[in-house]
């Protein structure tokens, strides 16, 4: 069994430098049998980062993964509001650098026109795109998604994007947080996977995802250091699904999604 963690951060992790922080992440990963981790975003986050901010955060990730290429992959963090700068950063970190994926957070909703070019370029580079999604209750009257930040995407919005980008490897971050409607929202999009990390270890999330999406579309990730590896691994280990399905979710699916870009970079698994 090779466990790969889709979703790790350098924030909320002990250590003064990016290198110290990733070593902390890897030390705990060793305790939990996790072979590789994907890391995105730096030590200080902003909802709407300026180009110099996201470049700095990506530099921190590049620093962190350097010399640890056998254990960690980087995803480039972008802000679609600064499209040209984001495309240049994508080229710097993925096309010309060691990173293998894209992280889009809450600066702008994924179904706005500016993001189209990022998805397209990511597809050309065979990069995996992790799109943060949530469905927060809020608004007046309250509704699912009504509590989202102005630029915070929903799984439904990612599903819209998926139709226009059938060749991009898309991951629905947090499975929408409110995972029951989140799973339904992406059900009809076979090339969208559900990233199950970063929510309470509520029993049933993985069972429903496997039932509705198929195990090959469900991917383990933790959202460490804000979350623990333990609570998120438990979603898979404790799920009432078959062992081959667990193998896919804990690592097999992520390996399959990353294989084309790793091959392009000359990295063999």
């Amino acid at each position: 069994m090779r466990i790969w963690d889709l979703h790790c951060h350098l924030s909320a992790v002990e250590g003064d430098t990016p290198g110290e922080r990733i070593d902390t992440l890897l030390r705990y990963a060793d305790r939990m049998g996790i072979e590789r981790i994907c890391v995105f975003m730096g030590t200080q986050w902003k909802h709407d980062p300026l180009p110099e901010d996201f470049r700095h955060q990506n530099d921190e990730v590049l620093t962190a993964i350097r010399g640890r290429e056998d254990r960690a992959f980087g995803f480039v963090y972008l802000n679609p509001k600064y499209l040209q700068e984001s495309l240049a950063e994508l080229d710097r970190c993925v096309r010309d650098g060691p990173m293998v994926g894209v992280k889009l957070w809450v600066a702008q909703r994924c179904n706005t026109p500016a993001v189209e070019a990022i998805f397209a370029r990511a597809g050309d580079l065979k990069a995996v795109v992790y799109q943060h999604t949530w469905l927060k209750i809020g608004g007046a009257p309250a509704y699912s998604g009504g509590g989202n930040l102005p630029g915070e995407s929903t799984p439904q919005e990612l599903a819209e994007v998926a139709i226009r980008h059938p060749n991009v490897r898309l991951i629905c971050g947090h499975t929408g947080g409110d995972w029951e409607p989140g799973i339904r929202a992406i059900r009809a999009c076979p090339h969208v996977s559900a990233g199950i990390g970063g929510s309470h270890p509520t029993r049933g999330i993985v069972e429903m995802a496997v039932r509705e999406l198929g195990a090959e579309r469900v991917i383990y990730g933790s959202d460490a250091g804000g979350r623990s590896y333990a609570s998120q691994l438990a979603k898979v280990i404790g799920a009432d699904i078959s062992e081959p399905e667990k193998t896919l979710i804990l690592g097999g699916n992520l390996q399959r999604l990353l294989r084309p870009i790793l091959k392009q970079k000359g990295i063999s698994l």
Partner: peptide, 13 residues
């Protein structure tokens, strides 16, 4: 309500 394994694995982590 939560997977029991979550608490159990925290003891390992």
């Amino acid at each position: 309500i939560f997977y029991f394994e979550a608490a159990w694995l925290k003891m390992q982590e």
